[in-house]
Design a protein around this nucleic acid. Structure first.
Lengths: 183, 183
DNA sequence: GTCTATAAAGAGATAGAC
DNA sequence: GTCTATCTCTTTATAGAC
């Protein structure tokens, strides 16, 4: 049900997805859905928190698996893309439909998101501190650039396409770390 | 009206934005709105095509203003960010609410978007051809990485924030071209 | 745990006066 | 060009039988 909601929310937007269509996708009537979930909003909320909890866990594991900041950053990039492209609909919905949550819950999700972004920024800052990453740009700007690279991928990646998640992860890690210019 | 629609569609999603609220923002009643526009969908369609036409024009002008692919790419990055961050709501709505258009119009907008992305890819490919950009990764991958960097910025940039559009453009161009690793 | 039936509210859009 | 009034349809969610 949650997976179906993620797919439908991504396709139609949260407001555009009807409980009837959602129920019909899982083969029941919309009234039966309310036996499993209190409201449509609850689905969105659970989906957002799950997606962020999962990606944060995986990122922390990736960071813990390496010792040097540069290697940690590389592992983090691969972990983020692997996780978010696997649960693509959930992550895409979290990123764009977050706005449809009422203030209290929206702020909770934003807090989770900020916590995740802080994990990323700490690795970047550690890389600057040990001299493996450039320091002429702020850790904040470097982190924002990285999150751009990671997040937007979720919106165009296709599991059926020619580019695999692993290939994309390897390429983007190299683009981010080494740049695209020669010399 | 179009600007108000862009803002509201971005805030609530296309389906979540009501014609009543939209009209009230511009100080009229929802019935009066239909004197200016045929339907809510028309607003989204016009908004998508306008945003893509504008960014494509500016990108082409940026490319034409330089001779070397590397300089063209730099100018293109600055132009894209300047334009899309100026009309932020319009571009953000185009990127996420495109899905709410009926098939025919959606395909038209996608065609515009693809045409723009081809402009970017041609500059990248030219850079690879003249040896200023690395060729171990495909032009497609390098272009996708760049579009990630550009597009996601639209979703977190705030005109009131500490980071200005020009500063972000300069930083991200350097991150993309030179990378963040030292050495 | 799923169904039929329906309540209550809100949606996009139109008609016709001014 | 904007208004009031309203049509028609769809929405989320509930009630209660099975």
């Amino acid at each position: 049900l949650l997976d179906a909601a993620a797919t439908l929310f991504r396709e139609r937007g949260f407001a555009g997805a009807t409980t009837r269509e959602l129920a019909s996708v899982v083969g029941i009537h919309s009234a039966s859905m309310y036996h499993h979930v209190r409201s449509k909003e609850d689905l969105l909320y659970v989906l957002c928190t799950e997606s962020l909890t999962k990606v944060a866990e995986d990122a922390e594991a990736a960071v813990a698996s390496e010792n040097e900041p540069l290697a940690q950053l590389h592992a983090l990039i691969v972990a983020h893309l692997t996780t978010s492209l696997f649960d693509q609909d959930k992550h895409a919905t979290m990123l764009t439909e977050l706005r449809s949550l009422p203030t209290k819950r929206r702020n909770e999700v934003i807090a989770l998101r900020d916590r995740y972004e802080r994990i990323v920024m700490e690795v970047v800052a550690a890389g600057q501190a040990d001299g493996s990453l450039r320091s002429d740009l702020s850790a904040r700007l470097l982190t924002l650039a990285l999150l751009n690279l990671l997040n937007w991928t979720i919106f165009w990646y296709s599991p059926d396409g020619e580019l695999g998640a692993a290939e994309i992860a390897r390429a983007f890690a190299s683009v981010y770390l080494d740049g695209v210019a020669v010399g």
